[in-house]
């Protein structure tokens, strides 16, 4: 990692950590919580789909399972409302990963394009089940134990836990990228059959990656449920969730470390801000459509790759210019 990119990471982290200190308005801190939740999800989604090239469009299952784990356990265990409920966040992630194992075992039997369709189909099975089952509260949803923190700082603990999830997802992605396991996923992305022929156990690598990616998404769902206090099957098992995180990763740069974070930061905060400012929750869809046309036209590999290419090209040009100048100088001396 170069000096510049390290500086950008540190600055980004400091800015995110100071945000609720500087911007104290609860409405804006709430936007921050939602944005961080999406950043964690997009980063984690990218750790499987970006690395292997298997585009999963059923991650809302993990988000919903995480949310329902939080809701059902806190309600049925009669938990005292408060910070202790944060302990259920990792549990939500664990349950999401366990649920993902049989799903992955089925969906990963097929290759790429078919995989996309199968994940969507499995998602709808879960959504319909959640809407119709009794224990999910069906369409009227579930109300979690009410946390009576003061309105002016209610959002702040959630903000920092969500920031923790983002850091967790990012570090996990970076570690995976440096491990053999990550190299195997990238090899699968480039040529799965060739990887198999070089001894990579492609099936177990894909399944492990898939289940691991669902862990953070499940945790994010659990945190969301605790944050909003009431969940509905149609909102936690939401097909737009998958479209959103996939688009965030594409916008920022699929397969890169910073790309999904940046994509989610831009899109989710923008969407929340539009909803808050114009109290129109579908206006963003039109703007997003236009934005994506521009991205696909001008930087099809995403913002991060676009900028990185510019920087390396400029550095190469400057180096060439210096070398040329030295040659001229040497020539004139001789």
């Amino acid at each position: 990692m170069g000096h510049w990119s390290r500086a950008v990471w540190v600055l980004g982290l400091v800015a995110l950590a100071l945000f609720p200190v500087v911007v104290t308005s609860p409405a804006y801190v709430a936007i921050g919580v939602f944005t961080l939740i999406y950043m964690a999800c997009a980063s984690s989604w990218n750790m499987f789909s970006g690395y292997t090239g298997y585009i999963a469009l059923g991650s809302a299952v993990s988000y919903g399972v995480g949310a329902y784990t939080m809701a059902l356990v806190s309600i049925h265990a009669n938990m005292a409302p408060g910070a202790a409920m944060f302990w259920l966040v990792p549990l939500g992630g664990l349950v999401a990963s366990l649920v993902a194992l049989p799903i992955g075992a089925i969906a990963l039997r097929v290759r790429r394009h078919t995989f996309v369709v199968i994940t969507i189909a499995i998602f709808f099975v879960f959504q319909l089940t959640a809407i119709n089952a009794g224990f999910t509260g069906s369409t009227s949803g579930l109300i979690l134990p009410f946390i009576s923190w003061n309105e002016s700082y209610y959002n702040v603990p959630f903000y920092y836990v969500a920031l923790g999830l983002v850091i967790f997802a990012t570090i996990l992605s970076a570690l995976v990228r440096r491990s053999r396991f990550g190299l195997q996923m990238l090899a699968i992305r480039d040529d799965e059959d060739r990887a198999l022929g070089l001894g990579v156990r492609t099936t177990s690598v894909k399944l492990t990656g898939f289940a691991l990616a669902q862990f953070t998404i499940g945790m994010a769902g659990a945190l969301y449920a605790m944050f909003v206090g009431q969940i509905f099957p149609q909102f936690v098992f939401d097909p737009l969730f998958d479209v959103s995180i996939a688009l965030m990763a594409f916008l920022g740069g699929l397969g890169t470390l910073a790309g999904p974070l940046l994509g989610a930061l831009i899109l989710e905060s923008f969407q929340q801000w539009l909803t808050l400012t114009f109290s129109n929750s579908s206006l963003y869809l039109i703007l997003f459509g236009a934005l994506f046309l521009l991205v696909i036209l001008f930087m099809p590999q995403g913002i991060v790759v676009f900028i990185r290419d510019r920087v390396t090209r400029r550095a190469a040009r400057e180096k060439a210019a210096v070398a040329a100048a030295e040659t001229t100088l040497a020539g004139s001396r001789a």
Binding site: R178, S179, R180, F181, L183, L198, G199, V200, T208
Partner: peptide, 15 residues
């Protein structure tokens, strides 16, 4: 990477 167990690949560095 052919000689390794499934879980070792997760924890070991690339090379």
């Amino acid at each position: 990477q052919r000689r390794e167990g499934w879980l070792r690949g997760l924890t070991r560095s690339k090379s």
